[in-house]
Design a binder for these strands. Structure first.
Lengths: 145, 145
DNA sequence: CAAACATAATTGATATATCAATATAAAGTA
DNA sequence: TACTTTATATTGATATATCAATTATGTTTG
């Protein structure tokens, strides 16, 4: 009697969870800042906390492909969130710098990002979160082997 | 001293987990079937288990947007995985039918899908999985409110 | 030093995600 | 029946994901 959909398995629940989280995040961000995506926000936040990292390192921190990062940065430069200049020491690299507009935007989105996390994790005990973390890490390890 | 990256939070772990799972899934599928994506496989599997569902219902079962489904089906018809005919009772709808090629492909991918799930969940106890499920459901509910 | 190798980023091709607007058909209601 | 509302699917615009191939630059080594 195994007529459970594969979507019923926990792995699809993971997918569903992250999709719902991205949805409310984008909705809440769009209320305050019109022309930015959740992914672009994440890039801003990461760049703000990690000074002078390369696109490569940025890609690793946000779990994205180099190709995706290239295109995202292109857009963010066009929208005046970032400046990009050639790296002196290694001319294959670039310096990524947050613009004034980017800094102002960060101030707007930081509290929203916090709120989004709190909304998603509302009612979860610290223990639940720790267990979730542990289990997800196991899954990640399993997939990487 | 809160200088943890937001990526370090459990929510980004969720994103990371599903990304890694999708990666090995796609890799394993591509070894056996060349011209299909994980998402298209999921559509095949769901259609196989749920006879005569509309695109709308399909979209809900796989957690995708109607627009995405429209485009996916278009591709899958083009690649001869699906047939699409007009629904007699309701001319807004379509009948989706798996072709012979689709059925043969299903036989190839079903064991791989099973293997992928087992790989990802390897070493997790039933209790851990149940807890994971419960916690993810809470997050989903939180985001939907 | 030159050849081989390694790394950073880009580009092209293709697939999917999301939102808003639209077309068409069906159902409900005055 | 005509009018309004609702449901199904499509389309356009834009963003991101992934892989493979490529370019440009750096590094290592014979």
């Amino acid at each position: 009697m195994n007529n459970k959909n594969p979507t019923a398995t926990v792995l699809y629940l993971i997918e569903q969870a992250i999709k719902e989280y991205r949805k409310i995040s984008q909705r809440n961000i769009s209320k305050i800042v019109k022309d930015i995506t959740v992914d672009q926000c994440l890039v801003l936040i990461i760049l703000n906390k990690n000074d002078k990292i390369s696109q490569n390192e940025l890609a690793n921190l946000v779990f994205k492909d180099n190709a995706s990062i290239t295109r995202m940065i292109e857009l963010m430069v066009k929208k005046d969130y970032l400046n990009r200049t050639i790296h002196k020491g290694d001319r294959r690299k670039f310096n990524l710098e947050i613009t004034e507009k980017g800094k102002k935007t960060l101030e707007l989105i930081n509290p929203i990002a916090k709120l989004n996390r709190e909304t998603a994790l509302n009612g979860l005990s610290l223990e639940e979160i720790n267990l979730l973390e542990k289990t997800l890490n196991k899954i990640i390890t399993n997939c990487k082997i």
